[in-house]
Structure formats: structure tokens, C-alpha cells
Design a protein around this nucleic acid. Structure first.
Ligand SMILES: [Mn+2]
Ligand SMILES: [Mn+2]
Ligand SMILES: [Zn+2]
Ligand SMILES: [Zn+2]
Lengths: 146, 146
DNA sequence: ATCCTATTAAGAATTAATCTTAATTAGATA
DNA sequence: TATCTAATTAAGATTAATTCTTAATAGGAT
């Protein structure tokens, strides 16, 4: 199951590269592999730092340019975190989910709502859009902070 | 109707200030007034520039600090735009809506989906959150770009 | 093996947002 | 109304995040 997901996501990434006429470079493969090992949310710079620590010559810019490709191929999704960084996380076994964020204490809760996902598809369909990915964040006050 | 909305939003902003024990300063009033005149989406800096052009001494920082208050009081909502800026727009007569963005050409379409809004409320309720505002953006390819 | 073009590394530059400090002001109190 | 005090502000510096620039490298076709 896990292996199936990995294979599936690898091929989806490959397919996107092909479709766009993008080359399957060493760096893109490394970034894909590294992301597949991450279990928590992350940002571009922390991913870059991991390569730096391992002594791999992958530039910050390449990381920044590759993440949108992983987004669009469904390997990662938008996530939530502190500050104004872009956060990502791998779409693993638990699958896609969205986030509720407490504006007081910063607590983040993940939620899954199949009905919302379906409605999103419908909305996009209505407008002739092909949905690629989305970013859905609910901001409010958690029970403890109210 | 327009007047009613304006009055309503003004009092909601006032209420938030009171609730938080925040002072109703000249600057906050000016920013509220200026925002109420905007019909399109905008970012913090462009709002700041408007004051600068008019010769008003409102600092960039005050604009940045006031926008979250307008968000939380329901005067503005998160919007979408180019780049990594935070975009906002007034919740006017047309009411709240969300955005679909074409990843190829940047075209932005606004949509309203009452069912999604209701489901969001339900989700927050389930987790004991009091929903304050949200950011829902769908990224995909528009009809022309497919 | 050679070529052409896309991609990359490295670091500079830009951009967006936040922080610092001293001055100002709202609102409470006398 | 005058005085007081804590909150708020302006201005500009700083930090943080992302993108750009240039020259070198490498994928994949021929
Ligand atoms: Mn979702
Ligand atoms: Mn919405
Ligand atoms: Zn909280
Ligand atoms: Zn398009």
C-alpha cells in the first residue's frame, strides 16, 4: 500500500515532467526522494538545508522551482505553518487534508471533508477549470483560546 | 442597502476594537474609510501608497497591523493576486466569495458556494473552533490554457 | 561523440513583512 | 478642562522569503 503510493506518486511526477517537456534531472530526482521521506510539514528552505547538510549540491533556487512541480503532480499539498512562508507536506497514506488555524495560539488542526472536496471539483467544472491543487485554510479561535 | 452595509461593517470594526480593548485611533479610522472606498482587490503596500500620495502620515506598519483587524471583523476578506503578497478585498455588496486561479495565465475567477461555506462552519464546530475568516483558493488550468 | 538547449549553482538582488526607538495620542482620571 | 499613563504610532532599519542574474553543466537528440 505504502509502496503502491510511492510508485504511483513517482510516476505522476514523471508524467508531469514528460507532459511539460521537462527533463528528469538528478536534482529533481533527489528532491522527489527527499520529500518522500518527510513525514511532517516543511518549507522550501528547510528542505534545502537538508541537502546542504548531506553535502549535496542542490541549490536553493532549484528547490523553490521544483516544489510547484510536486504540488501540481499531487506529490505534496499546501500546508500551514507559522509566518509567511509557504508550507508543504507530502500527501502520504493519510491522504489530502486541510487546516484550521487558531489566530490566538497558532495551533493547527487537520481536517478532511470529502463533501467540500467534491464541491470544489464541481465549482471548477462549472467554470471549465481543470483543478490541480488547492489551499483551504480556516482561521479562528480554538476552544482553549475562546 | 449599501449604506446599511457600510454602517454595519463600521460597527463591527468598532466592536472588535472594544472587545480587544484597542483604541479607536485617527489612523485606524482613516484606514477603515479608505478600505471602504476600494472596489478592487489590494495589498497592504498599495493601500499605504494611497495615504502617502494624499499626504497623510499613516505608516506602512500601521497599515500592516490594521489589516488583520479588518479581516477579523469581517470588513475585508482574503483575496488572490500575483506573487507572494497577501491580497485583500472589501466584502461589499456582492458579499464573500473565493477564488480559482489559473496556474498558466494567472486569470482569477471568483466563485460563491454556500454549501462549502456551511460545511466550513460545520467542520469548525466539530473541532470547537470559532471560525473568524478563511482563505480558500483553487489552482488549476482555465479553459483557454488547457 | 557532438551539439543544442534546458537546467543548474551560487550568490546578489529584490520584495514583503516585521522590528526598534522615540515621539505622540486616546481615553481615563482628577 | 488639565493631567496622566499606557497604548499606539511614524520612520526607517532590519530581517526573512523568494526570485533573479550569469556563467557553467548536463540531458537527450542526432
Ligand atoms: Mn481540501
Ligand atoms: Mn469561502
Ligand atoms: Zn488557540
Ligand atoms: Zn489560464
Amino acid at each position: 500500500m505504502e509502496t503502491a503510493t510511492l510508485k504511483n506518486q513517482a510516476s505522476r511526477f514523471q508524467e508531469l515532467l514528460e507532459q511539460r517537456g521537462l527533463k528528469c534531472t538528478y536534482e529533481r530526482k533527489q528532491i522527489f526522494d527527499e520529500v518522500m521521506h518527510l513525514r511532517e510539514h516543511f518549507d522550501a528552505d528547510s528542505l534545502y538545508e537538508r541537502f546542504k547538510k548531506r553535502g549535496l549540491r542542490i541549490s536553493r533556487d532549484t528547490v523553490y522551482r521544483t516544489l510547484p512541480l510536486l504540488l501540481e503532480s499531487g506529490v505534496v499539498q499546501k500546508s500551514a505553518g507559522a509566518g509567511h512562508r509557504d508550507f508543504f507536506e507530502r500527501i502520504g497514506i493519510k491522504g489530502h487534508h486541510d487546516h484550521i488555524i487558531c489566530v490566538k495560539c497558532g495551533k493547527i488542526i487537520e481536517f478532511q471533508c470529502e463533501d467540500i472536496e467534491k464541491l470544489q471539483d464541481k465549482v471548477c467544472n462549472d467554470y471549465g477549470f481543470k483543478l490541480s491543487f488547492h489551499d483551504h485554510r480556516l482561521f479562528g479561535t480554538c476552544k482553549e483560546c475562546q
